[in-house]
């Protein structure tokens, strides 16, 4: 049994390790390591298309995760005050946002936005006093909106679980001592749910940073890092892609490990 378990762990990590190893390969071949070199990293980082795709990804991931953290937390706090029927509706919609395949979310968002734009743009053009009316189109906004949907559901789910495990008595004690609801929230509730909010933010960031399929549909002419990597892979496998892949891996690893530490803290505290 132990041999089987070890081989599964090997199976999980060996391919990633190989990608990382060969990102430092001087030669181009995937089957022989011909010498250590960081040339592929230098080549990747001097590629302006890549750098601008990375910038786009960071902007989109940060914005969608921040919006999701704020609105998702608000929803989690508000939902427990709703009637059970409304709460079930929210639960169902959030579940749908998570379970519906990304490819469908991408398509649905694309057709809806294009339909809206085809109606709104002529209207703006007709009403605009100047010569060059602004045109709405796909880009940052549409990717942030579509990523924000999944991320908000994710944050709401995580924060809701945390709120459910909070002790009611301490909140009641706070209001018995004449704290206003806002003070109680700031001093009692927020500090306890903050790690979960941060973990949700980091997971949302990771999701957005790594998502390919939703962005592929709604990005318009914008390129995100996964879209760039996908396009490069189709042009041919090169060690430069290994270098980019390694950088992406390191970024996601840092994010997910931080999120896990934050969630762990929450669990050990609630275990007291």
């Amino acid at each position: 049994m132990r041999a089987f378990i070890s081989s599964v762990y090997l199976f999980l990590y060996a391919p990633i390790a190989l990608v990382v190893l060969f990102s430092f390969n001087a030669g181009r071949n995937a089957s022989e390591f011909t010498g250590f070199s960081t040339a592929w990293y230098a080549k990747a980082l001097s590629n302006t298309f890549l750098v601008s795709a990375l910038q786009n990804s960071l902007i989109i991931a940060f914005t969608s995760a921040a919006l999701a953290a704020v609105f998702g937390t608000m929803a989690a706090l508000g939902m427990e005050r709703l009637s059970s029927r409304m709460r079930a509706l929210f639960d169902a919609l959030f579940a749908a946002a998570i379970v519906v395949p990304g490819v469908v979310i991408g398509i649905a968002t694309l057709v809806a936005l294009v339909a809206v734009f085809s109606f709104v743009n002529p209207t703006i053009a007709a009403l605009w006093p100047g010569d060059q009316p602004p045109r709405l189109g796909l880009g940052y906004g549409s990717i942030i909106a579509a990523h924000g949907l999944f991320s908000m559901a994710l944050v709401a789910m995580i924060v809701k679980a945390r709120i459910a495990s909070l002790g009611r008595d301490i909140v009641e004690a706070s209001s018995d001592l004449y704290a206003t609801p806002l003070t109680t929230f700031r001093l009692i509730v927020l500090p306890q749910i903050l790690p979960s909010i941060l973990a949700g933010f980091l997971l949302a960031f990771t999701f957005s940073f790594d998502d390919f399929i939703i962005a592929f549909f709604v990005a318009g002419s914008k390129t995100t890092l996964p879209i760039y990597v996908f396009a490069s892979i189709r042009r041919g496998v090169t060690p430069e892609i290994n270098a980019i892949a390694t950088l992406v891996l390191v970024a996601s690893l840092l994010l997910i490990l931080t999120a896990r530490v934050l969630m762990r803290e929450k669990k050990s505290k609630s275990g007291e």
Partner: peptide, 30 residues
């Protein structure tokens, strides 16, 4: 943790790893 972490790293990169291994410069070359 070692089981969970790969799930939250890029599926694109993890799938690319197998493309690299199974591709003509990988195992078939060996």
């Amino acid at each position: 943790s070692l089981v969970v972490v790969p799930f939250w790293t890029s599926l694109l990169v993890r799938t690319y790893a197998w493309m690299y291994i199974l591709g003509s410069r990988g195992i078939p070359n060996l």
